[in-house]
Amino acid sequence: MTCGINTYQSLKKWKDEQILNFRSDAYALNEFHDRVMKTVFEIALDRMNNEKLPSWKLAWFATGSGGRKEQGFLSDQDHGLVYEAEDPEAATYFLKLGEEIAEGLETVGYPYCEGKVMSSNPIWCRPLVEWKEQISDWMDEESWQTMRNLHIFYDSRALAGEKEYIGELKSLIHNRINNNPNLLSRLMETSMHMKNAVGPLGQLLPEEKGTHQGELDLKYTAFIPYVNAIRLLAIKEGIIETSTIARLEKLQDMKDYGEEMNRYKNNFATLLKWRLLTYKQTDTYDDTHFLHLKSLTKRERNELKSILRDGKKLHQFVIRTVEKGVV
């Protein structure tokens, strides 16, 4: 546990004091988030143990930006639980633990996930056997919602417990895709929407209305398109790394990918850097996705444009690659 911290409140205090030290280093910031989240988990376990100490095996995983190690200063919580035991008593216990964790994360400064991707939700808190069934069902159903669930799950990374559970579950997806490339197509169809940010005259298209007037919505014009595109390639190639940068590094070494991946990697690193640099302490979670265009130099604006244009190229590349693989 982090130097004597044993309540959510004291953890929050420590986190708030430390976090701005990571303004220039996205990697270190995410290591820091990991440390905070793991501490939340330990405090939660501790509080549960007042009732009963289970010896059940489990994996607690983060997903979303936490799973990808791409959190900014503020981000909401996305996580789930996989456990071994299959009896009803275990189910009750782990759901309760899930609620405890979610509440703890909330107290420490990670708002609840609006989409309910949290260990307190039975869909994201199951025994390993049921998880396997659920993922199979998701792949069979191929609906918009179940494809979304697969995307979310694919960014999972174990923060505590049995790491291999997550790997085992992801390999179900790889196996299915090897036998049925159409699934990859379905995954693509449900994740390739892109908010356009460069106009036909080559101008940047900031928000027209609202409190973010004149700012660019980085989350939907840049982050999500890059993340989604690279995740698809990762699924296709069986890459189990979760961070977009790490996925790109793996892709770089593969034939058929090559040089461009390096450029995309640099682009994405720049995006992460900008998000940290523009953060103000008064920002809410929504605010952190918007880039003040006025604060950019001419060179930075051009760089941004080329990153956004590259995003489009990357999308085209992914579409071609996936379609090639489908018989």
Partner: peptide, 9 residues
């Protein structure tokens, strides 16, 4: 209009 002068739809 918002405090900062931006407009809402």
């Amino acid at each position: 209009f918002n405090k900062d002068g931006s407009a809402n739809n």
